[in-house]
Design a protein around this nucleic acid. Structure first.
Lengths: 223, 223
DNA sequence: CTCCGTCTAAAACGATCGTTTAATTGAAAC
DNA sequence: GTTTCAATTAAACGATCGTTTTAGACGGAG
């Protein structure tokens, strides 16, 4: 009986990281299905079979790419919310910013990989493969469980499901900003640039905060 | 010299429509790249080569599918806005509803084809293929040129670029509602259903109207 | 030195893809 | 009846895909 350890004992040949880097770049540029492992391994200067050795399949590689990309973002979100709640009840604007700023800032640094992340996540969530869905749940579960009550405390006039709707809307805005940002730049003839976080983040926070503070849908004036 | 007419003179074998129907269904379910023409033509009960005869390639078929799907939606949007403006200045809520209701209602009737439309459109817009980009421009140009000034008149306190930003946010919410609706249903344990237009449309209108009416970003109180 | 396990290398496998070709059908035109 | 041409069919082409297999390289442990 033999133990397989995650790390090789002595040194670190970076072929695993080189594959991940190339995959991140090429999955984002051409999409998952259109990226062939041959082109990927050529770009990474790595043998073709190395992908199946280190990850067990092309989908396993996607899983690893996704994990490495979003895990730090979610940790930063939770840290920001922790910092806010350490000083009493956070404002609605603060919660929204803690939620959207980390992914948007990452997107500003590396637009291409981040842009496809929401698409890949959506793909995983609608995939029949259970492993993919549980991966996404494991990645986003803690964030969801911490931000939902935070929004609830900041918006006491809203029923819980209404909050779900509006967080959903927030998600849509955030995704669109990352995935379709170049469209806005195109239509504004370059004047509006969603990759500029000092422009995009305050605008999103302001827009969403106003939308979230709107009266609840089914309430015909409760006071 | 011989004239090639679009329609065959005598009768109408519906193989062209059968291909379009099957393509709409299968592109939406499995995506464009994952749908093979062999599976598609089998499903449509049509010969494999018929796709290349009627459309000139797989991409030509995608173009035709997209055109047939969004053209009526955009016509309805313009008609609704016309009707509103026939009775004086429309309200902000009215303009938003004229913009989002047609695609969302179509999505409620046929969730699958509509869900992938925004993705395909995004794909076309970021494609290096010029024909794809001009197709999207031709499809959405008139809508854009009519709704932009309408929003401008309803929001006179906002600079034009700020309006672009917020219409962009509206687009994100609409797209998310169609593409990721099942995610909201999943996380709300079935209580929130974006395919129910009597629920989703008023909520979107209310949220977006409040967000759009927020003060402009760069103005440090102008009055 | 020899054994061992990790890692890499080259080559092939089987399958499927989009596309093209060439032959054939069938109904209108003359 | 013959011609004509749009429409359909079956079959093949060339390429590329993800994956597997097999063998070899390299450094530490005995």
């Amino acid at each position: 009986m033999r133990l397989i350890v995650e790390q090789p004992q002595h040194e670190r040949p970076d072929t695993k990281d080189r594959i991940l880097d190339a995959a991140e770049r090429m999955f984002a540029q051409h999409g998952f299905e259109l990226t062939s492992l041959r082109a990927l391994t050529t770009e990474a200067d790595v043998n073709l079979a190395a992908v199946h050795y280190h990850f067990r399949s092309k989908e396993g590689l996607l899983e690893a790419v996704l994990q490495r990309l979003v895990a730090p973002v979610n940790e930063e979100r939770l840290a920001l919310l922790d910092a806010l709640e350490a000083h009493g009840h956070p404002t609605l604007e603060g919660i929204i910013e803690a939620f959207v700023a980390p992914p948007l800032r990452l997107h500003a640094e590396r637009p291409h990989p981040t842009a496809l992340a929401p698409l890949l996540i959506g793909r995983c969530l609608s995939s029949p493969d259970t492993q993919m869905r549980t991966l996404v749940m494991r990645l986003f579960g803690p964030v969801f469980e911490r931000f939902r009550p935070a929004f609830g405390r900041a918006l006491p006039h809203l029923p819980p499901d209404e909050i779900l709707w509006r967080v959903f809307f927030l998600l849509g805005i955030m995704t669109k900003t990352m995935v379709g940002g170049h469209q806005l730049k195109l239509f504004s003839e370059g004047r509006c640039d969603p990759t500029c976080t000092t422009e995009s983040i305050p605008r999103i926070v302001q827009f969403v905060a106003a939308g979230m503070r709107a009266p609840a849908f089914h309430s015909e004036v409760d006071a």
